[in-house]
Design a protein around this nucleic acid. Structure first.
Length: 306
DNA sequence: CGGTTTTGACCCGCGC
DNA sequence: GCGCGGGTCAAAACCG
């Protein structure tokens, strides 16, 4: 993806001059002259158009601002959640098994939440305690659920790190293949990542991270998805801000709104130094996704002009 | 040409 | 012991 900062202003086909053919406009003028008998100055019409253009531009700007605010809130929530997860994980970091083979503590079928569920090995949830494998003591494991476009068949979850795919397998419980990735940025980094589509909802990618990165993100200025904390011990959850393909609705998979209250109650939450860049990237991505969808732009243009 | 992806083969743990 | 299935290896293909 391009790294350059791009204006996030939505380019919508809402220019009244373009939406109306010149022929139609001529006829309109002729009709006005014929009906009233008084020539309507072209200047007035152009003023109306300019006014309309300004109004649409203001609307456009407002939408962009709303998007930015949304991204900020999303980032703040994600940062807060990741910190909580990391704090909980440190208490259980001692539980590391050298065993190569691990039973996978994944429950894709019951977990449809979009977002980040860290440290599934922490077994803090009592519902899994009964069926938890006995050797489920392994390096830090976390899961990230990412909503993607269902038509997108790639198993790529961009999280800011550099991954090298080393295998793909079709598992029994899921017709979608599972891809295996290894961190290729540092040879000493043994973090692995498994990515598989959810069996229930193919639009959801489930990424399972094993291990901890012993390095920073691959490229700090790279157009990667915002990592919540550059020195995070776990994976960086990916903002799932994809547009739904078919309906002209936009689904932003953000955290529960109730969490915003928690965020407001903790003003001393440390803010990542990369936050502005991340926000910009988020806005950029969302805007790009939205503007790429002709249905969305058409619907938005209709809504604004209507 | 070097890094990445693909893909079939192989390894190994687990259940029967 | 055997078969199954998940995970990994490694050679070939691909790509910039």
């Amino acid at each position: 993806m391009e790294s350059a900062w791009v204006d996030t202003t939505l380019v919508l086909n809402i220019n009244p001059c373009q939406s109306r053919s010149s022929k139609a406009m001529k006829q309109e003028f002729v009709g006005e002259v014929a009906d009233s008998g008084v020539k309507v100055p072209v200047k007035d019409e152009s003023e109306v158009l300019v006014e309309e253009l300004n109004r649409v531009s203001a609307e456009n700007k407002k939408l962009t601002e709303m998007l930015t605010v949304l991204c900020e809130q999303y980032y703040a929530l994600q940062h807060q959640f990741n910190e909580l997860v990391n704090n909980n994980s440190k208490t259980e970091a001692a539980k590391i098994s050298s065993k190569k083979r691990k039973a996978v503590c994944e429950d894709y079928g019951t977990n449809n939440l979009i977002g980040f569920s860290g440290n599934t090995e922490s077994s803090s949830s009592d519902e899994d305690s009964s069926k938890q494998p006995k050797d489920c003591l392994k390096p830090k494991i976390s899961m990230v659920h990412v909503r993607t476009n269902p038509s997108d068949t790639s198993l790529i979850v961009r999280d800011g790190y550099q991954w090298r795919k080393y295998g793909q397998k079709v598992t029994r419980d899921n017709p979608c293949p599972r891809a295996y990735f290894r961190c290729s940025f540092a040879p000493s980094c043994s973090v692995k990542k498994k990515v598989q589509r959810s069996a229930e909802d193919p639009s959801i990618l489930v990424a399972t991270y094993e291990g901890e990165h012993n390095h920073d993100r691959a490229h700090n200025n790279a157009p990667a998805e915002p990592s919540v904390s550059p020195t995070n011990t776990g994976p960086a959850p990916v903002p799932s801000a994809q547009t739904k393909a078919s309906p002209p609705t936009v689904t932003l998979d953000l955290m529960q709104p109730a969490r915003m209250e928690d965020d407001a109650n903790k003003p001393d939450q440390p803010i990542d130094a990369h936050a502005p860049a991340i926000r910009q990237l988020l806005v950029h991505q969302m805007a790009a996704l939205l503007t790429r969808d002709p249905k969305f732009t058409a619907a938005l243009a209709a809504a604004i002009s209507g």
